Computed example of a mutant assay.
Amino acid sequence: MSTTAAVPRVGLSDLGPIAQLRAGRLGRRLPQLYVGLVAYGVSLALMIRADLGLAPWDVLHSGLTRHLPVTIGQAVVVMSFVVLLLWIPLREKPGLGTISNALVVGFSADATLALLGDPDALWLRASMMLGGIALCGLATAMYIGAQLGRGPRDGLMTGLARRTGLSLRLVRTGLEVAVVVLGLLLGGTLGLGTVLYALAIGPLTQLWLPSWIVPLDR
């Protein structure tokens, strides 16, 4: 038996699903993953109740609710598994966090919406919108930092970038423009919040991510 202490692997690692679970520190990583995913759903609900514009993918989700007998949380779950089907030709590897993301975010959003009313005052709606965007950035840093697998939409972005040779920024922009256009065609909600989200979510996630990356054992 080796007596050498495990050396933490600093930064984000690209591990397969089994290796992610074997990398240790699950007592920290699992709670962080699920708190982050629940917070992500709460952030979605805040932006919906603010009614000042949704995140790009949620424009699509809100559009789907106008044509299918589903709640917006259920639409998130359905689209998550549709996106996961696109992982197959891209050969992306899902992890526990990937499947959890597909389920927990949508259910958390619906649960939060059941508790939140529709505010009338513009200042309150604006506060909910800004709070939702900030919370989404924090939640994203938390679940990515847990290192238990990319979310369905994150994996689609990274898979397309790897397969096409295009930059992550270009692929992300293309995907978000596409889902916004499709969402608008379906009657989804676009507004100031959509623009602010697009501008702020990257910098916010980058700001908080270093503090939430859990070092893994080799």
Rank of each mutant, 00 (worst) to 15 (best):
M142V: 14
A75W: 03
G117W: 12
F81Q: 01
V59Q: 04
R49I: 06
L130F: 15
L160T: 04
V83Y: 08
W57I: 10
G73T: 05
I88K: 15
L156C: 01
V82K: 06
A111S: 12
A134P: 02
T112A: 13
A141P: 14
L84D: 06
M129E: 10
A139L: 14
I133A: 05
C136M: 15
L85D: 06
M142E: 13
M142I: 14
L86Q: 05
L115E: 07
L135E: 03
V104S: 04
G155D: 00
S100C: 14
Y143C: 03
A75S: 12
L90G: 03
L113R: 10
A139P: 14
A126K: 06
N101L: 01
A161K: 02
C136E: 14
P152M: 01
R163P: 08
G159Q: 04
L85K: 06
R150Y: 13
I133S: 08
S62W: 12
A121E: 13
T98C: 05
G155P: 01
G132A: 10
A126E: 09
G137V: 05
A121R: 10
D118F: 14
A50Y: 11
L54I: 05
T71Y: 03
R163Y: 12
G117K: 15
D118E: 15
P69K: 03
V104K: 02
W123D: 08
W87G: 07
Y143H: 11
M157Y: 02
S127P: 08
A126L: 15
G159A: 06
G97Y: 00
L116W: 02
H61P: 11
W87C: 06
A134H: 07
W123C: 00
A146Y: 13
R91Q: 07
M157E: 05
W57Y: 09
A111Q: 10
G132M: 12
I133H: 11
G117T: 11
I133L: 13
L124V: 15
A75R: 03
D58Y: 11
R91V: 03
V77G: 01
V78K: 01
P69C: 02
Q74T: 10
S80P: 05
A55K: 13
A111M: 11
V76K: 02
V83L: 04
L64K: 05
A126S: 14
R162E: 08
L96Q: 08
A102M: 09
G132R: 12
P94T: 06
K93A: 02
G149V: 09
L90H: 03
P89G: 09
V83S: 07
V104A: 05
S127D: 04
G53H: 08
D51R: 13
Y143V: 00
A126R: 09
L60P: 03
V77K: 01
